[in-house]
């Protein structure tokens, strides 16, 4: 057995379902950073239920996720949104008297968003990957819950030839919002339209983000417009799959 340290990959159900290639890219990056990747059996972190007001349903899912993740010292999530659920909301999910509360807090403290993890555990030098003109979209939960901002930009600068385009209103939500885009599709579409306008104006050839929800929203909107701008997860770009 290898003596390298172990990191658990919480792949997120959206990646699991829609874009498994993002999960494989993330796993390769974690391995290249010198870690052995373990993927514990996993379902959903419970965020859809939590944000819909179904706290009991969220607890049910959280208990399963906590049990799966608590053996690991490092838990890497290729999503600020699911990462934020684990790191920021799990500690508030259970009543203080509930024995799960302490376990939730323990797991929360070990969660790292993928680019946070890669910033702390650098990848070996491998020459610059081609990326071209890139607009980086900060997902709201990466930015505000996980406090990720500089890490993905630094990684792109270190490992790719990406030329970052200035994105107007970069800190404004793209309109995905989980169930929001299903419950309020008109408002969501309006916000996505504004975001895609800004992306087109930026002159970017590729939009990169750390959250698949935003990416599906942006990619779907750009495709409907007939735009040729590519939309990729940061893991794919750094792994050379973009």
């Amino acid at each position: 057995m290898s003596a390298s340290p172990t990191a658990a990959l919480f792949v997120t159900c959206l990646v699991d379902l829609m874009r498994p290639e993002v999960g494989f890219a993330a796993a390769r990056l974690i391995e290249r950073a010198g870690f052995q990747v373990v993927v514990p059996r996993q379902g959903c972190c419970g965020q859809p239920n939590y944000n819909a007001g179904d706290r009991e349903g969220a607890r049910k899912l959280a208990r399963a996720a906590i049990a799966a993740l608590e053996p690991f010292d490092i838990i890497v999530v290729p999503s600020g949104s699911c990462g934020g659920m684990l790191a920021k909301h799990y500690p508030e999910l259970f009543e203080a008297s509930d024995p799960w509360a302490q376990r939730a807090i323990a797991v929360a403290g070990r969660v790292q968003e993928l680019t946070q993890f890669l910033a702390a555990h650098p990848l070996p030098e491998t020459g610059k990957l081609p990326a071209g003109r890139v607009a980086y979209h900060d997902s709201c939960s990466s930015l505000r819950e996980m406090r990720v901002h500089d890490e993905p930009r630094a990684l792109l600068a270190a490992h790719t030839d990406a030329e970052l385009c200035k994105l107007r209103e970069a800190e404004t939500c793209c309109g995905f919002g989980g169930l929001f885009c299903v419950k309020y599709p008109d408002i969501s579409a309006h916000m996505a339209r504004d975001k895609c306008d800004a992306i087109v104006e930026s002159g970017a050839e590729m939009v990169v983000s750390g959250d698949l929800g935003c990416l599906l929203n942006i990619e779907g909107t750009l495709d409907k417009r007939g735009s040729a701008i590519r939309v990729r997860h940061i893991a794919e770009v750094l792994a050379g799959d973009a």
């Binding site: 829609m18 579409a189 996505a192």
Partner: peptide, 18 residues
């Protein structure tokens, strides 16, 4: 239906990650 009124979705390829 609302989601695809202004968007398309690329279908997933192959089996799930897990």
């Amino acid at each position: 239906k609302g989601f695809t009124a202004t968007r398309t979705i690329a279908p997933p390829k192959g089996g799930s990650f897990q």
